[in-house]
């Protein structure tokens, strides 16, 4: 018989070749080149001159860099806790059968996620403006405050505002992710629980949450990676009082594309990379550890 199949496997290389080609030119090339630049002094006019580890030494002494790490973390924590809490609560409520018009609520809560982050940043900057912002006007009209609050004069309030942009933008997305998770939990589990006489609260704690755990973990990890890179919204708000809303990527942007210290900017990029790698590894290790504990 001549039906011996010709091995078609090598064709696979052709199928994946464009992907890798583009990766090497537009991704890996720039990354390696950035690595080289991080050892140079380059202001844009001169040719980059090799200066060894000087940029990294500077990075370790740059209090603003450490401040930006701290800011990023604070903003992330301030946004992630309420964001996930609200998302989970809403998901649990909207999963209930008696709610009518579910789709409308999905749409309303998800909509902020569709809006461009830059636009969100500008909108919040305008809303929380000290003298002209609608937020102060509203608070004063409701009699909550007497004088306008100078939001962007307080480091904490500024961070809170940036965090609330992120929260507002992402809670709807996370809610949908949780809802998708909830829908994948089989109905009969709940029915069984109901027969056993468990109330709503008990089923939520005993059944829903444990089964949602993979989804929660996934959300946490992606939000760590995303949260470390916040840039668009705080850039529109500005650096904030005492640089309190200067995030890591903003620091990189300012060094490279505002002050034209490209070499130092490249060093900051690698600093950020190391931090994100550590944060990701840490959050993965945490979840693994927990899984082991719970068998």
């Amino acid at each position: 018989m001549f039906s011996r199949r010709i091995d078609k496997s090598p064709y696979g290389y052709l199928f994946i070749a464009p992907f890798f080609l583009v990766f090497f030119i537009f991704d890996l090339g720039p990354i390696l080149y950035s690595f080289y630049l991080s050892f140079t002094d380059w202001s844009g006019f001169n040719t980059p001159t090799f200066i060894g580890l000087a940029n990294y030494e500077r990075l370790l002494q740059d209090t603003l860099f450490f401040k930006s790490i701290y800011n990023t973390l604070i903003i992330w924590i301030l946004s992630i806790i309420p964001q996930l809490t609200i998302a989970l609560t809403l998901a649990l409520i909207l999963h209930e059968k008696f709610i009518r018009g579910k789709h409308l609520f999905h749409a309303i809560f998800y909509f902020p996620n569709m809006v461009t982050p830059v636009t969100m940043g500008v909108l919040f900057a305008l809303m929380f403006d000290w003298q002209n912002g609608s937020m102060n006007k509203l608070l004063m009209a409701l009699g909550i405050v007497e004088d306008p609050v100078y939001w962007f004069n307080s480091p904490f309030l500024s961070q809170l505002i940036v965090a609330s942009i992120l929260m507002w933008q992402w809670f709807g997305f996370n809610m949908l992710v949780f809802l998708a998770g909830l829908q994948s939990i089989p109905e009969d589990l709940y029915e069984a629980a109901e027969i056993d006489g468990a109330n709503k609260f008990q089923t939520a704690i005993k059944i829903t949450l444990p089964l949602l755990r993979p989804v929660l973990i996934f959300t946490m990890i992606t939000s760590v990676i995303g949260g470390m890179q916040i840039f668009d919204q705080p850039l529109m708000i500005g650096k904030g009082p005492e640089n309190s809303t200067l995030t890591m990527v903003m620091h990189l942007y300012e060094a490279a594309f505002v002050r034209y210290e490209y070499g130092y900017g490249a060093a900051i990029a690698y600093g950020i990379f190391v931090l994100i790698a550590i944060a990701t590894a840490f959050s993965m290790w945490m979840t693994k550890l927990k899984e082991k504990k719970e068998g």
């Binding site: 290389y13 090497f24 030119i25 090339g29 080149y33 040719t47």
Partner: peptide, 21 residues
Amino acid sequence: MNKKNLLFTMLVFIFAIGTLV
């Protein structure tokens, strides 16, 4: 393929530095 990729990476890199100089 893998070798080729590596070669290509190096080429990009060398090219990059070459242009720089």
